[in-house]
Nucleic acid binder design. Sequence first.
DNA 1: CTTCGAATCTGGTCAAGCCAGATTATTGCA
DNA 2: TGCAATAATCTGGCTTGACCAGATTCGAAG
Lengths: 230, 230
Amino acid sequence: MKENSLLSDLAAHLFSNSSGNGRTPSERELAEHFGVSRGQVREALAILEAMRIVERRAKSGIYLTTTEASVEAMALFARAGVPLDPILIYETVELRKIHEIKAAELACDRATEENYEHLRDILAASEAKLSAGEGLAREDRDFHLEIVRATKNSVFHRVCSVYYVMGEHRLPIYFADAARSRRSHEEHIRIYEALLARDGNLAQALMSAHLQGAESYWKGLIGGPAKAAG
Amino acid sequence: MKENSLLSDLAAHLFSNSSGNGRTPSERELAEHFGVSRGQVREALAILEAMRIVERRAKSGIYLTTTEASVEAMALFARAGVPLDPILIYETVELRKIHEIKAAELACDRATEENYEHLRDILAASEAKLSAGEGLAREDRDFHLEIVRATKNSVFHRVCSVYYVMGEHRLPIYFADAARSRRSHEEHIRIYEALLARDGNLAQALMSAHLQGAESYWKGLIGGPAKAAG
DNA sequence: CTTCGAATCTGGTCAAGCCAGATTATTGCA
DNA sequence: TGCAATAATCTGGCTTGACCAGATTCGAAG
């Protein structure tokens, strides 16, 4: 992964070193604190501002945004190597269920031969990985995203991609369990068959059951009553 | 809106001035072309790189990413003031339908008094705007997002926020039609009542019908057979 | 035509500085 | 003492110039 440590370190520092009104240390102070030039700090701040995490007011200062964190922010953080709160992962899985169950249904109508071909390739790759005793994180993502791609809705695909970016650091753990990987793979095969038969109802049902497993897993991981994160 | 014209201009310029292998002009050339310093170009490039639109290879050059544009990219572009392709808006509406119909159902289970209070405030504000002959773009967004918020799934809210960011420049046009605004407002009221009665099925149905109107509108706007954008 | 080394180019990073509005401290008057 | 006017300071925005070291390119030698 390409990690922008200054970006995440800076973000963390801003959150813990902002005054009551959300004003953060100045660019010059930040530069000195991190031992880099002002230019570096400004580059990171530009990203943070684009993410709407921070607002730079000319001749005044840098202020933390009161807005809730955006998906962009979450995705960018995840991409920068910052592990996300498990509760966010759980919430993401709940969302994935909504998305992907519907995607399975739409895919039955819209999937083309190209999609089926990709799915077969992915299933073959999964089989190989399983035989080699390796995890399926990558293949799992590819399989699910290919179904979303089959909806022919590019925004749909973009949005779902983010979910996998966010879970990137956790999925390998999930798939470290050989039995779970095997079961997941077999469910994929059945989903593929339903898609091929263009049986929307079956595909939906299978996808629902499939994702239920993941949901339970993460629910168990966060434990107790789920509290929404700020 | 806070527009970062350099960001969008630069992005456009990169797309039309990249060589076969995706390599773009150098930072120095870009700086000269836009009449700004290298620092400005680097700030914009940092954002473009965070959006995964561009890849900066040390001592080599800047290359366009082959990956499909991410939601982050779409959102950031929209926020930077770049109008999106109508087809993307249409795809977004299709997605919103999936999301928000389910959100309406979940909200019936999870909405708190606070959510209901906000919804009432928003409806009151809408009424005021309508009386004043003004459009409802902002209130429409607030209403829909409040329902999503009522699901108590923060990721859900973040994702849906993006949809509205992307449509930001088009919504005012949609709501410029007084009759449409009025009808939309009345549908909101009925949805609110269903939520209050915690009638999941009714809320879903009403939301579905409500969004169908928007979907038809955009579908008519793009006209002809929809082709997926790269 | 190929090979290999030198000149050139490129992103990464830093330092120093000017601008002008925002902030804050200080002064002086009532 | 209270307050208003003024001066000093701070802050983000932006520019110029420079150095580094690997990537790239080009030309000369074989």
